[in-house]
Write a protein that binds this DNA or RNA. Sequence first.
DNA 1: ATGAAAGCGCTAACAT
DNA 2: ATGTTAGCGCTTTCAT
Lengths: 329, 329
Amino acid sequence: MANIHEVAKQAGVSSATVSRVLNNTSSVTEKTRQKVEQAIKELNYEPSMLGRNLRNSESRLLLVLIPNFSNPYYTEIINGIEDFSVERGYNILLCETDSNPTRENTFFNMVKNKLADGIISMDPTINMAKLQELAKKHSIVLCSEYDELERIPYVAIDNEAAAYKVMKHLIRLGHENIALINSDEKFLYARQRRKGYERALKEFDLPLRKEYIYNTNNLDFQGGAQAMRKLLQLDEIPTAAFAVSDTLAIGALKELNVKGMDVPDAFALVGFDNISFSNMTNPTLTTVAQPMYQMGIAAANMLIDQLQGKPVDSVMLEHELIIRESTLN
Amino acid sequence: MANIHEVAKQAGVSSATVSRVLNNTSSVTEKTRQKVEQAIKELNYEPSMLGRNLRNSESRLLLVLIPNFSNPYYTEIINGIEDFSVERGYNILLCETDSNPTRENTFFNMVKNKLADGIISMDPTINMAKLQELAKKHSIVLCSEYDELERIPYVAIDNEAAAYKVMKHLIRLGHENIALINSDEKFLYARQRRKGYERALKEFDLPLRKEYIYNTNNLDFQGGAQAMRKLLQLDEIPTAAFAVSDTLAIGALKELNVKGMDVPDAFALVGFDNISFSNMTNPTLTTVAQPMYQMGIAAANMLIDQLQGKPVDSVMLEHELIIRESTLN
DNA sequence: ATGAAAGCGCTAACAT
DNA sequence: ATGTTAGCGCTTTCAT
């Protein structure tokens, strides 16, 4: 592959001029431009990003950290990040941490040693202390899960309000025994959604029953199925459940199917995230929709602004309760 | 962030020696090594990949091309690619082409201008001619969908045999009117699976009915639902269907649910891919499992071997029919 | 065993 | 408007 000097030679100009044509950074005569472009075509020249990046000391690569690829919740956010980044001349590198500190370190190092310019983290399991340390010298944005101390800018939704809204919906349908299938409460969103759950109970004078709260450390289908299995073994079986993710809710629904419990007649169910599957289950799943694509756009926008030295502020976006068959009546 | 010269100065050696310590490429006295490592720690030094990559003219970045993030079929393959690549010192960049030629070109250019070392393409919609052109000078591997002329090494399964196996299973259950919900037959896998479908019909002396073959250009749930809607409008409604992806099958199943058709009693259904959700539907879905993780490993292995100048051969991996509730009896 | 120096491909400051 | 030159951070001959 030809380099910039060969192009310059071929065009009979200096490499600086070729660079000028490439980046149209300062004026070049139409005639020289023609010559250069001609030479570029003839030699089939493609500028080396390696050289350019070294010179500019930037990679135009953004890291997007997610715990694993398997959770469809992330895909739509990623689409937003991707679309926006590409538009502004950045590429994104999707990084699966597997909640593994070694992997995590690999990605942090990529930023430190200039292989990537910044990070959008959607990984709730991330080592927040290390990330904050990194944030002192590099650009970082959080998405979905955020830092309570707010030292790193984030884009998120009001989890407590969303959970409260879900509960209010269930309570209005007449449910009094409502379970919460929550994830590990070491995560901020889990604590926030629990808060909303409890606030609704209190406001409607319903008792808070410890045995109705199930914490799982497995966010996939299996986790939801197992949670429901436990709930159905209780002396007084709840009549509804709010699962903090659609994957959990779908697993729970499967378990209800297996046990022959009719949804929503015998048991009402609500999920969270509005993943595409949630509209394919039987019955379809009531859930909370986050403006995922918008969140992705916002996160990418904030990160790139930050990279370009502009000031950025955290944002809270709106959510929406989507009522479907699993809570009809 | 300190650079290699500052480390050298701090340690009282030359930058060449620091480089030697970093890459333990030639012998260095234990004492000097100590000094250097000390200096590295003190300055919190991280070698710049930008400099290293430019010098070595490699990026240690592999591109993985997929049509879009939303299809869970790819996730497990990606896991395999990722795990293996990281082990061999490469990172992967997940590239969503959206079947958009412009995006595609962006990624091809990344290889041309040294931002990435090679490509694993899982995108059936890719411009094969351009890819072949690129393959003349760069390392490329195909996964799942491949090049009939076999000029680019690939890892795949025997689609025709898999489709035949599915049909044989349905025919043995007594079905004679079996529909095929296929994707666009511009894709090789679609043609191959149709071949298997037809071969089974012929072998069992069943008529090939054109109206039982539905081609969709939309591989998601909606595509499957729409296909089933059409099939259920036929004069002689089929009693079973083979959908060439689980997403299609799940959409079809949803439509059957909506129409109140019992699966498998009134209608048997088979999918393809064994995505995790296929075990969460009601009823659970019979499907063909591909060894996705293994495919990912194999593809990454082939690409890295190729980059290192080793000869590589295409491979065909085994598949397996997973019988679940949607075809029980 | 270690150092000096060249150079990977590019851009930008400075000079003309 | 264009050319000259230095240098981004690293590795690797070639000397010593």
